[in-house]
Amino acid sequence: MKRILFGDNQFFGVNHVSDEKSRAQAIRFKEDTAILNTLDKAIESGVTTFMCTTHDRIAPLCDAIRQNPEKYDGFTMYPCLPYAHKYANAVTELGIVGTLKHYVPGNFFASIFKGGFAFVSKDYISMMELMIDAEMKMFAGINTPVIFLQNVITDLLLGLGMKDFFRAYHSYIKHKYNAEPGYITMNMPKLLDFLESAGIENPIICSSINIDGFRMSGGKDLYEHTLRNRNLRAIAMQVLSGGATPPQKAIEYICSLPGIESILFGASSKANIQETVSLIRHYDKQFQFSEL
């Protein structure tokens, strides 16, 4: 994984510390070209990995990337499955069974219902695989070396203790997509324990890591201890705690931590992208030298 990854929250009005800013962003990125322009600015700054949800609006971006192979040579995407709000809204409307009927492709579900429950062996793992395929369709032909499970799903499965689903996800992503499975979570230390107990070693885990301890469940100390002493490939997100801390201080903290392979950030303007990138490069250099 590259040291710096570009995120997509800003494009879809996701802002964790201000509803007002969310709205402004939704207006700013109304057109797909506005998103593409910002992506291009990230690329110009040397950030060539785009980590994104499977939001409907990613599909036209994928089209644009496929249509310009030279321009996007070396560009990679890290899909994050699924875009949870889509399913959450559907569950409210259709219920859990109704949502699965609606989203599981083909007549897989119909065959389950045929003949009544008692006589059919249901394979929920292959249902999950079909849903992954449906979500991954839009990325066909694009380089997606890491594929993430979104935090709402990761943390839900974690809370419910569904080890088999993690194992199944892990192996399906590896074998079907020849990619590394990754996990986004708000509960990094807990998830690492759980994945290890499921036999998943040295996993890629993306979680909130910031100087303020924001959204670091179990506490900042536990996170730091985990980064120092455990085996994982960590990605730090929400490094600016949603803009609460001055960027210098925030980035200095992240770069000073051991065990963080990549830093994920999102920004809307060229100036902000450049500022964050150069801060990371600056502090990386500083801490590398101080280690020597």
């Binding site: 964790h16 709402v152 809370g159 807990k190 301890g213 959204r215 670091m216 469940s217 705690s241």
Partner: peptide, 15 residues
């Protein structure tokens, strides 16, 4: 002020 000025840390986070 923003939520991160006030939110208390929890042991487990979901939504």
């Amino acid at each position: 002020k923003h939520i991160n000025d006030f939110s208390e840390e929890v042991d487990f986070y979901l939504r």
